[in-house]
Design a binder for these strands. Structure first.
Lengths: 166, 166
DNA sequence: CTCAGTGCAAACCGTTTGCAGAACG
DNA sequence: CGTTCTGCAAACGGTTTGCACTGAG
């Protein structure tokens, strides 16, 4: 995916956040922040580690995990769990009101989209159930355009069972 | 949560599914199926194990996991990952068109609700992005009525960082 | 009687933690 | 210089797997 022009200022914001918290701004933390803020992808820790290695940084996984915690706490980065068995991280720079995700079951790519409808749903939920919404997650799984055009089909999970109440 | 009157027929359907696949209908598989089909809750494997123990069945975790795979393949049970670090399972008996979930961040309770809006969203996604939706996940996290009324508040995650492009 | 299932324990895998040595401020 | 961080390796917790034994058909 592409680069982010205002990444430097976000990296600076993270530095300020650390200083405000009385935490050291280390080389490792800056490197991890650079990787996240210069990508618009939804990166896993393994992918972050790989990109760090490509840049010549050799940073232990534990440090990456610890830095991700800080980035999430700083609110500059969002954590996602798309049910793949590991987490993904996305900086909040590009995604102003665009919070929802399309996940391709073939290639794993993640596309963001906006869903104004969800706010109406949340209002309804508050009225009908007395439930107070704090955050939500709207994810649509399927085939992205290019995989679909490439002829990919969904596994359909094979087996199934006729639902009929005998 | 409550009982399900048509659980017996669902258990029978699972037995038929197994036979159709040429798989043995064992006592353990029947016990596990009984536990899920007689509950409307979203159960974790640990909770299933505990309920089995309460009934006097002592079934190994490995067997429970293996049976859950079969139940999911049979399409009689749905797997959920609410980001708790483990999976939850829900039978498909009660939830006809009701697929979405409200998850209480205080007590962990899960309430189902229906969201017709999502179908409109999926249609739009197909048209705008060429993305072919297969399934979706709409989850709203917040405080359920009783926790809210009991005065619970959301942690607000403490720290944050002013988002301003310097 | 045969083939798949079960239970146990070990393996797995993403993530977390403890600790000695290295850096930040 | 004290305090926090880093890297390594070991620990963790949910899930999966290998294997000898049991049980369904």
């Amino acid at each position: 995916m592409s680069e982010t022009s205002s990444a430097p200022s976000f990296i600076r914001l993270f530095g300020r956040y650390l200083r405000d918290q009385g935490l050291p701004v280390t080389q490792q933390r800056e490197s991890v922040a650079e990787v996240i803020f210069t990508s618009t992808a939804h990166l896993s820790v393994d992918e972050i580690e790989e990109r760090l290695r490509e840049r010549g940084d050799r940073i232990g996984k534990a440090t990456i995990y610890r830095t991700m915690d800080l980035l999430v706490k700083s609110r500059l980065v969002e954590e996602h769990d798309f049910g793949e068995g590991f987490k993904r991280y996305e900086h909040r720079l590009s995604q102003q009101p665009i919070h929802e995700h399309l996940i391709c079951l073939e290639c794993g790519s993640v596309t963001e989209f906006e869903s104004p409808e969800i706010h109406r749903v949340e209002r309804r939920i508050r009225e009908e159930y007395g439930f107070k919404p704090a955050r939500h997650r709207v994810e649509i799984y399927g085939l992205c355009k290019s995989c679909h055009e490439a002829g990919a089909v969904l596994p359909e999970d094979g087996l199934f069972c006729p639902i009929e109440t005998v």
